[in-house]
């Protein structure tokens, strides 16, 4: 599944960049994130309860900052597993705009869902994934604009 969008963030570009490169901060915007463990500068792990209504699954997610071109472009890869299901995602983020802000973030995400969720939940997955990704980037904007 491919998703994309643009977020206008009323914050300087370097602050946006720093936020995106900080696992604890960017991770806190991930859907349902319960805990984050930083392995090293490129790798971190998250535990997330992802769901919709009362339907949910607990995923163990490995995240990698696969590419970084400061302060313009970053690629984050995520590989999450829950019993019977898996999610793999690659998120591209491109920052533009004046250095003092506002910053434009063009993002795209390629999400692959495997296993039971894909097999049984097909009629609900696309809308849900779309919404969660949108919420993630909204969260990033909100936190940055709130000075986070």
């Amino acid at each position: 599944m491919q998703f994309q969008g643009t977020v206008e963030i009323n914050a300087p570009r370097d602050r946006v960049w720093a936020f995106l490169m900080d696992p604890d901060r960017v991770g806190s915007c991930g859907p349902g994130v319960e805990s984050i463990e930083v392995v090293d500068a490129e790798h971190f792990k998250a535990r997330a309860k992802v769901g919709i209504g009362f339907i949910s699954a607990r995923f163990n997610v490995d995240m990698t900052i696969a590419e970084r071109t400061e302060p313009e472009r970053a690629v984050i890869k995520a590989h999450g597993q829950a019993p019977g299901s898996a999610v793999d995602a690659t998120a591209n983020m491109a920052l533009s705009g004046p250095g003092e802000g506002p910053t434009t973030m063009d993002w795209s995400a390629d999400v692959t869902i495997s296993g039971t969720l894909a097999s049984v939940g097909a009629r609900m997955i696309e809308g849900t994934a779309n919404k969660m990704i949108g919420q993630t980037f909204d969260c990033i904007r909100t936190k940055l604009e709130a000075g986070g």
Binding site: F54, I55, S56, P83, T116
Partner: peptide
């Protein structure tokens, strides 16, 4: 979680998509 007739809820519990 409220259980009424169960015909919506139980299949989800059996698929372990919900675990109240």
């Amino acid at each position: 979680k409220i259980l009424s007739g169960g015909y919506s809820l139980l299949p989800l519990l059996k698929l372990r998509l919900a675990q109240p």
